[in-house]
């Protein structure tokens, strides 16, 4: 079992003909993902290493029955790509692209909610999603994830997502699904969406959650865990020692006025019964203890 994607998921790569789209599209196919098509309005009818290219998602969905897409389009084209996917019948859109303007994100997030309520978006600015051994959509190195379970992972940061997978693999702990929700201001999928899905997934017995400073998503997740989750959670928040007022790379990672600090987030999580580690390795060790006690 898994959440959101599995071995039956058929995926269209929007931007398959670009260098990044091609590299990761082929890498994902090699992993076992059903990469059934790509899109590029100027290259319809061509193929990329045998993968057919369509003019748009509607054509691709009609021809292949795909339900998911993965966006490797430059930031300026992401808004159109998201709407093309939703209008074309894609139900799960994964957007890897970074640098998308916040106003575009806010707009397509709300347009999807209003016009395509059955569509779920992951990202932008995320590493994607992997159900180890079955389906890898995005830029995660598949070999660092051990298939099976019992742990689900949800993370706001790309490289820390890999770090979390790696820590668990080193301890011979399997992962049901690992979701990188991205660090942008308006993530299509939230911590809570993933926590709810993991809570409902019978194969997932515990959840590892990687957050970072800025915003209030971790505090909201803590509130959800406290009131709705029965499964144990371990966590790590990046930016514990970040000086206040400094903006560290991510649009999401800004600390100001005592709000959104790592301390506030860790306290909220501990209050919800979450085991909080001070670095990714410690969070992995805490998860190993949780798994060992099952």
């Amino acid at each position: 079992m898994s959440i959101f994607v599995d071995s039956d998921t058929k995926v269209i790569y929007q931007g398959l003909t670009g260098s990044q789209g091609r590299y990761y599209g082929l890498l994902n196919r090699e992993y076992g993902t059903q990469v059934v098509g790509g899109t590029n309005p100027k290259k319809a009818g061509e193929d990329v290493d045998g993968i057919p290219v369509f003019a748009n998602c509607a054509d691709a969905v009609e021809a292949t029955g795909a339900t998911a897409s993965c966006i490797f389009i430059p930031a300026a084209g992401v808004y159109s790509a998201v709407m093309d996917a939703a209008q074309g019948g894609i139900k799960f859109i994964v957007c890897i692209t970074e640098g998308v303007p916040a106003h575009d994100e806010a707009k397509f997030y709300n347009e999807l909610k209003a016009q395509h309520p059955d569509v779920q978006m992951l990202g932008p600015n995320c590493p994607g999603i992997i159900t180890p051994g079955q389906c890898n959509i995005g830029i995660t190195a598949g070999h660092i994830a051990k298939p099976g379970g019992p742990v689900g992972i949800v993370s706001r940061s790309g490289t820390l997502t890999y770090q979390a997978l790696y820590e668990l693999q080193q301890k011979d702990i399997g992962v049901t699904t690992c979701v990188g929700i991205g660090g942008d201001p308006v993530p299509g999928t939230s911590f809570i969406d993933c926590l709810a899905a993991f809570e409902a997934d019978p194969a997932t017995k515990a959840v590892m959650m990687i957050g970072e400073i800025g915003g209030s998503a971790e505090e909201e997740a803590a509130d959800y865990i406290k009131n709705h989750m029965t499964k144990p959670v371990s966590s790590y928040i990046a930016g514990v020692t970040a000086p206040p007022g400094k903006k560290m790379g991510h649009a999401g990672a800004i600390v100001s006025g005592g709000k959104g600090t790592a301390d506030a987030k860790m306290e909220a999580l501990r209050d919800a019964g979450v085991k909080v580690g001070l670095n990714p390795t410690e969070a992995g060790e805490l998860m190993a203890e949780i798994v060992a006690s099952m």
């Binding site: 993370s155 940061s157 490289t159 990046a238 930016g239 790379g249 670095n279």
Partner: peptide, 13 residues
């Protein structure tokens, strides 16, 4: 470091 999260985590560690 590569990635804002990993860079922040490196600073932490």
């Amino acid at each position: 470091a590569n990635g804002a999260g990993l860079a922040m985590s490196t600073v932490d560690v």
